[in-house]
Nucleic acid binder design. Structure first.
Lengths: 164, 164
DNA sequence: CTTAATTTGGAACAAATTTCTATTTTATTA
DNA sequence: TAATAAAATAGAAATTTGTTCCAAATTAAG
């Protein structure tokens, strides 16, 4: 499709019902052909093509991704790990964030309200691999005050769908 | 690409380094051409094409998705809502799950260990819209015992990358 | 109502995917 | 170790899809 590593601008973009229709379809299946999208929305290929291009450039569409099933690649254990830092100044926060970004086991890191400062989602093979991560990677950070691990028993719903 | 709504089987599939290389690339950019992938991995198009097809059919690649930036479509508030049920028998659990699946605001629902039974991730416009969801949708379920809302202050990391 | 700006349809073109066949590589067995 | 079978690969041909172009239609502004 389009998206040849062109930098997306932050131009605001008003999305009408046709744009939303396109997003709805592409969220579910990014491999739909422009012709098929056009067919479903009763348009021709050109407007669909142009609208997708604009949404890519505006950053509405951030990425096209192949979604891999963790269970099929032996990364079946998901753990939510809650973290509080000892010190909360800017420098310490930046350092923590930088190190978290480098941990490939961490698929998500949220700065949150409440008792803890951060929630990280860790995707690993099994409990052994989690312990390895918890002790030798997370445990080596020097600004940690308190952590709590919550284990995911089953995934009921997981979607990227934010346009309806 | 491939993936013309063919049913994926659950055939186990051994993934070698070439498959992993393909997944690595497609996770980051599903629009990469087979030629480019082949170029980067020093292969020709056919093996890359066949390997992708096999991984689609085996369910390793679950989906190709356009990732939409929630901020660009006015869904900037993310809330983690923790839930315990009154009754935990199979029937009640199924009912709860069924209703959660229908809430478009809920992008994720995990059955978890610890104090609460479920964590749901809710993606909305603002606090008004969250209140609306919390009171009129979630609050209308009849099996809820206790809930807690944790608000996401900022997203540090969010990836779908599980192959490295 | 008239004009300007934007959006759209449909056809022509370029580029990608998909298929096919011959060849090479890997694995198996004698 | 050599011979054979099975699987994977390269390269080119066929097909499908993405992209561009321009004229027509629609919308917005004066």
């Amino acid at each position: 499709m389009i998206s040849k590593k062109e930098h997306h601008t932050d131009t605001p973009l008003h999305l009408d019902e046709k744009d939303m229709g396109i997003l709805r379809l592409l969220q579910q299946d990014a491999k739909m052909t422009i012709r098929d999208i056009a067919g479903q929305l009763n348009l021709s290929t050109t407007p669909v093509y142009e609208r997708i291009r604009k949404m890519e450039q505006a950053g509405v569409i951030k990425q096209y991704a192949a979604i891999v099933d963790p269970r099929k690649i032996d990364k079946s254990l998901t753990v939510l790990c809650y973290i509080t830092l000892k010190e909360h100044n800017k420098k310490c926060g930046k350092k923590f964030i930088q190190e978290i970004l480098n941990f490939t086991e961490v698929t998500e890191c949220l700065n949150i309200s409440g008792e803890f400062d951060f929630m990280i989602k860790v995707q690993v093979k099994d409990m052994d691999e989690y312990r390895e991560f918890y002790v030798n990677k997370l445990g080596e950070l020097d600004n940690l005050s308190h952590t709590q691990s919550i284990f995911v028993i089953s995934v009921i719903k997981a979607t990227h769908q934010v346009v309806f």
